[in-house]
Write a protein that binds this DNA or RNA. Structure first.
Lengths: 196, 196, 196, 196
DNA sequence: GATGAATGAGTTTTCATTCAT
DNA sequence: GATGAATGAAAACTCATTCAT
């Protein structure tokens, strides 16, 4: 077993175990012991790699958002046309809860903490504003030369994000609340009529 | 101080103190002691009126949803035309976080628990499906004779709820993420184009 | 409802409810609330008739022993010959757990407290020595003119009591540990051979 | 102070502290804090080694019975003749309360719980039936070829156990209730007459 | 680096007792 | 006399964190 360069490996091991614990038991029901057992390490070693529980939880949130952002980029970024991007973005919104249901469970747990924990709050709002900016950027750069007025585009990124988050939460809580495939069609219809 | 017939009063007193504590400290950071102090009673008396913390938290959630539902009804129900109702509904969606910001803080706290607590999960999904049904009812009964196809209406209630929840969460986390008044205009525009 | 002379009635009501609670839940698992509910009164009123829980428990023990002693006297006392008394006594020993199983449950609960509570200890040892004295009295007064030596009689009462208590406890804990009817025969055999 | 491999040591340390607490204060008067102080450890560590108070108390009972059984075996088992064993057994019965008075205090505390706690009940009845079986075995295997009828032997083990328990309880409660040495003589007389 | 034993403050919950009505 | 609301101290239990090995 290599003893050098283990830092990143161990940290990742613990972060991923923590995510699984959050999904299984919930952020506030999960103890450091739970995490240690899930990760297959001792409780002591966690404190070697993370300052304390608070610190670990922040790293987990960052990692979770990093992965999510990566997924968005991998899917949407390669596309050329912003119209294509928009439609892919809409598909993405719907796909996340189904393809990565754990993300929403983790997100919900942290959203509940955000109002009372400045650090978490900062990271969450940063993540949300990043997503908004991103949509804003490709809409404004590529579509401004188009036929529709700017003013309507102004709120579109926010609306898309809100819709995505709202639908994601609803579907995560109850998979029968709507069909993702059918909702996909409706959303494209809704947004197409808006921007055309 | 009267000592008899205080049941309803005390229960309400404790429930409201609990809501304030959730807003102040967060669901899982708040102790029974905190609640007792906030309510101005002893910890013992809380257990006289509620089976345990879990029970109290469920009553708080129910009461919170009851009040919220009541507010929706008071505002939207008196209106005659479903078109009016729909627009008022849209206004409402935007108004809630501003007029009753605590509701969203409380909601976020419980949403984080919902995936891990069957009772909370049941109440939350019931609340969401009630709201959806309600919008569904006035849309389907009054607008079916209209000019637009049913199929589009099918998802409208869910979309409205998701939008409302998503925007509410975003604005609660960051009041600068968008202007409620401007978003009001955009939403009406978005939905009008969809149903016309 | 008569308000005078209620004292004895209420006290008896509470004492008997307490006995039922001890049988149902156990001395140390039973709360004043349990007793109040079982007796159909408020917790407050118990403190009107008994100084505190300790006092109530002592009254219950006394009452339990009073009733038990009464039963012994009613059965054994009317008999003329001490030989008859002795045999009846033996029958009695065996009959108690079957005819009044609750007595042994209550007794076991108090025996566990006796080593740590001087008041209970005093009452229990008094009860045991009373039973011993009683057997001693009718054996020594009536049998001393008989054919067997005094020295053997000396311990007979204690042996009888120990046997009775031991068998009672065993049968109370496990009704299949022996057959009371068969044990009756064996005991008479054992004791007859001893004194003849 | 070593910090590793302390499991067995600590468990024994806590179990023995618990026994002392039961003797000092009584099973239901004794708190986990009391035990921790008596054992010279923190309350937390007890929960590291025992699931909860119930679990600890069961281990204490098992250990107590294990030790007691060991003592019986060490004394009686080496003997060849079952007549010898029987007489030694009788001596033993009388010796326990004097040589190991704590055993009876502990036993009395658990006997009071047995009717209301299935686990304790099971362990206690198992212990009693083990003792009965043991006496039964050496009586039936070695004495059946003797001159006295089987039928009388049938109940002898139970009678011996009941006598032992009854006398032990009486003497534990009141050391003046009889002289152990004199009772020894009487018992041997009683049983000898019975089996001859 | 790694372990898991150990701590002790903090949490939920119970309950004998009191007391205003 | 009678009620049951109210108290608060004490109980069982948890858990983040530390530290000897």
């Amino acid at each position: 077993m290599p003893k050098v360069g283990m830092k990143e490996v161990r940290q990742q091991q613990v972060i991923e175990a923590t995510m699984r614990c959050i999904v299984k038991k919930g952020l506030s029901q999960m103890s450091m012991k739970d995490i240690a057992v899930e990760a297959g390490v001792s409780t002591g070693i966690i404190y070697h790699y993370f300052k304390n529980k608070e610190d670990l939880l922040l790293q987990v949130l960052k990692e979770s958002f990093r992965k999510s952002h990566e997924r968005v980029m991998d899917t949407v970024e390669p596309l050329r046309q912003s119209r294509e991007k928009l439609l892919k973005h809409l598909e993405n919104i719907n796909a996340v809860p189904k393809e990565n249901p754990d993300f929403y469970i983790v997100l919900l747990n942290y959203l509940g903490q955000a109002p009372h924990n400045p650090e978490i709050h900062k990271i969450v709002t940063k993540f949300l504003s990043n997503l908004t900016s991103y949509a804003n950027r490709y809409l404004s750069t590529d579509l401004t030369g188009g036929t529709f007025a700017d003013v309507r585009l102004w709120h579109l990124p926010t609306i898309l994000l809100a819709l995505g988050m709202g639908l994601g939460i609803m579907w995560t809580l109850d998979r029968n609340s709507f069909s993702i495939e059918e909702m996909d069609v409706s959303l494209k219809d809704l947004i197409s009529r808006y921007i055309d």
